[in-house]
Design a protein around this nucleic acid. Structure first.
Length: 427
RNA sequence: GUGUCUGUAGCUUAGUGGUAAAGCGCCGCUCUGUGGCAGCGGUAAUGUGGGUUCGAUUCCCAUCAGACACCCCA
């Protein structure tokens, strides 16, 4: 194969990465912590396909959002369906919930998921084309702010368990279909006369998504933000009490938060509570976020169903753990290493490995090396405690040498007593 | 989609318009059935394509990839 061809083939697609064993240890840590937290708070694991009907996302995430318009990977199947690599998890969970009529099983259910998500963007810090999310969802029941609080607390505890420091929680309410449109109009009315003085992005926002006007970082636009109508004052009474009780729960649980009226989430399906987690002073991007989405099921043609959830970016969590100096547990070396001398012993060694497996003793080897020296060196590097040495002489006598690698003492024992002797020494 | 910077062994980094260095790693030898230490040796690289030049890893252009930022988001 010529060189250029090879260069092309041996490359992950842009913005997508292999997770090599060393990196994978961080992921394992996150996974284990997630399993513990979700189990404790009663979330059940759910897995959905990575590909879904593209319309599932355009309906829910929003036809006009960047995620759908510019960032979705779509695939035409041979039968003419348009599928999409999922850009997020919530829509799939809701689809499954409706498809299998899960609402009939219990009034309220909690699910969690993990897996790769895909967005076609330019990669940069904390942003990839294939990234992984861990998400929690509470579906059904009533739109009780307690559930908002539970999702938040579970996510908060996960970050704590992972020893992430300076966790900042930002909360806001983006209202409901009663107060949000009214607020949007007021905002537009307020900005209307100043459009010429605003940046180009804000002019677009004015039309498509007025809420984001408050999000602009352009200097030109800052002066106008101060006097803009505040959503807190314009929330309807239902939204306003909902937000208040979520905050009360946070106070009750001792979770610090910042009430951030500039927090606006980019997905259409949110209503009322929205929140994001940051590792303050570490990165500009959020570790995760979420909110309430009481209208999502209806968007999919189902019955109106209260729902709230949130998701973390696994890569972002791992990055933060690394930069904050979170430690990884020491690798636990295999205790027993088998060494052979000569071809006959090599064959016999394979059999001994099986014997040890039956006895529940895990063992490593470097049977590809032939010299005794090289094998012992490898044993040392593995950090093994015991080396089993098997050569012509031992096979002939029906023995095996058990060598203690710490103090270099060794003893030849009959093979029948091998397991027993190893167990004695490992204690 | 836009902008800025970067691309040298497996990893971390030197360096030069004229034979491309080192540390770590890996393999081996010193030590022919006994590891850790040490000494010695070996392994392996200028992302890709083009241009300028007698000669390019170095300069120029393109491209790809990466980093960072905008946009947006996990």
């Amino acid at each position: 194969m010529n060189k250029e061809k090879k260069e092309e083939i041996l490359k992950t697609p842009k913005g997508m990465h292999d997770i090599l064993p060393e990196e994978g240890r961080w992921w394992d840590k996150v996974r284990k912590a997630t399993e513990k937290v979700t189990e404790f708070y009663g979330f059940q694991k759910i897995e959905t396909p990575i590909l879904e009907q593209a319309v599932l996302f355009s309906r829910t995430v929003g036809e006009d959002t960047d995620i759908v318009q510019k960032e979705m990977y779509t695939v035409k199947t041979k039968s003419g369906d348009t599928l999409a690599l999922r850009p997020e998890g919530t829509a799939s969970i809701c689809r499954a919930y409706l498809e299998h009529s899960l609402s009939k099983a219990a009034p309220m259910q909690k699910f969690w998921y993990e897996g790769p998500m895909f967005r076609y963007e330019n990669p940069q810090a904390g942003r990839l084309r294939q990234f992984h999310q861990i998400g929690l969802e509470v579906l059904g029941g009533v739109a009780d702010p307690m559930y908002d609080a539970q999702v938040i607390i579970a996510m908060y505890r996960l970050l704590e368990d992972l020893r992430i420091k300076n966790i900042t929680l930002r909360i806001n309410s983006i209202g409901c279909k009663v107060c949000r449109p009214a607020y949007k109009r007021q905002l537009q009315a307020y900005y209307k006369n100043n459009l010429k003085k605003l940046c180009g992005d804000c002019n677009k926002r004015y039309k498509d998504n007025p809420l984001r006007l408050l999000d602009c970082k352009n200097e030109k636009c800052q002066p106008y933000k101060e006097d803009a109508p505040n959503f807190f004052d314009k929330l309807c009474s239902s939204c306003s009490t909902h937000l208040k009780s979520v905050l009360e729960y946070m106070d009750e649980l001792g979770v610090p938060y910042i009430l951030d009226n500039q927090l606006v989430r980019g997905l259409d399906y949110y209503s009322k509570t929205v929140f994001e987690f940051y590792a303050e002073g570490e990165n500009s991007w959020a570790l995760g976020g979420g909110g309430r989405y009481d209208y999502l099921m209806e968007m999919l043609g189902g019955k109106a169903t209260p729902a709230v959830g949130g998701a973390f970016g696994v890569e972002r969590i791992v990055e933060t753990m690394k930069s904050q100096g979170v430690s990884l547990p020491e690798r636990t070396p295999k205790k027993v290493f088998i060494v052979h001398v000569g071809d006959l012993a090599k064959k016999k060694a394979l059999k001994i490995i099986e014997e040890l497996r039956h006895a529940g003793i895990s063992v490593t080897e470097a049977l590809s090396k032939d010299s005794l020296k090289a094998q012992l060196k490898a044993a040392d590097k593995e950090g093994a405690a015991i080396a089993l040495i098997l050569g012509q002489k031992e096979i002939f006598e029906g023995n095996i040498i058990i060598r203690d690698l710490k103090n270099s003492l060794q003893e030849s024992v009959p093979t029948e007593r091998m397991v027993e002797e190893i167990k004695k020494r490992l204690k």
